[in-house]
């Protein structure tokens, strides 16, 4: 049985159908890439899985349980964490406190949360930043903080929304390394990313959305040769330059 199963997921905003009858599943232990041109509905999918929005129609099952319609904090308790494409740091708090608060909801007290936070901070390599205010970070570090905070909620499934957007070449390499490391530590990952080369490198499988619909699914090699995918990206600025 897959870890996460999404069936006929649909989201409408007024007259606009942002996601239309999308189905896919995520197996335990894999890294699934989710790609598609701008406005394809990727973030909206994440929002529904993570409980930030209710689906208009469709089902979401996690580890055999229906989770659609639950609130975001309940989903977090179930073991799913997400990062935000547009980063949402707690600006007036330190990096350490950002991570620690994420750990708090799963710990019995502050000292346990501190321990988890320290581990996650070491794991993600943001040691030097721990005392800094989250509002002072560069975009690259903010993206890493997003990942660290998600990890601190001790998830089994991690949803990463463009964790490499805005990073420079060296930072992208570090991010790839980190994602592989997270995956190796036993966590399942779904990642949205526009940087194709990076995505190909980390994903076991890829799902492609365009204009709200799923148009393809398969291994990275198969996807890169898929006619429908290439057509969907035509006319759009191709992001695979890096």
């Amino acid at each position: 049985m897959p870890m996460l199963q999404v069936k006929d997921l649909t989201k409408q905003f007024g007259g606009l159908t942002a996601v239309s009858k999308v189905s896919f599943s995520v197996n335990e232990g894999e890294v699934l890439g989710l790609i598609g041109p701008n406005g394809a509905g990727k973030t909206t999918c994440f929002n529904m899985i993570a409980g930030a929005m209710n689906p208009t129609k469709g089902q979401i099952e996690f580890e055999g349980q229906r989770i659609d319609g639950l609130q975001a904090h309940q989903i977090s308790q179930k073991g799913i964490a997400r990062t935000f494409q547009i980063v949402k740091p707690l600006r007036n708090l330190s990096v350490f406190d950002n991570v620690m608060i994420a750990a708090l909801s799963k710990s019995k007290d502050i000292s346990q949360a501190r321990e988890i936070a320290q581990e996650v901070i070491d794991f993600t390599g943001i040691h030097d930043l721990a005392k800094k205010g989250a509002g002072e970070l560069s975009i690259g570090n903010l993206k890493r903080l997003e990942v660290a905070r998600a990890l601190a909620t001790l998830p089994r499934l991690l949803l990463l929304d463009e964790p490499m957007g805005g990073l420079n070449g060296k930072e992208v390499d570090q991010a790839i390394e980190l994602i592989l490391k997270i995956n190796k530590s036993g966590k399942t990952v779904v990642i949205i990313e526009h940087i194709m080369k990076a995505l190909m490198q980390v994903s076991d499988r890829i799902v492609v959305l365009a204009q709200g619909e799923k148009i393809a699914e398969g291994t990275p090699e198969a996807i890169s040769k898929n006619e429908a995918v290439i057509t969907a990206y035509l006319g759009e600025e191709y992001h695979a330059q890096s």
């Binding site: 930030a52 935000f84 949402k88 608060i101 909801s105 601190a152 909620t153």
Partner: peptide, 9 residues
């Protein structure tokens, strides 16, 4: 929203 995502009710 971030607080919710971090598991805060």
């Amino acid at each position: 929203q971030a607080a919710e995502a971090m598991g805060v009710p």
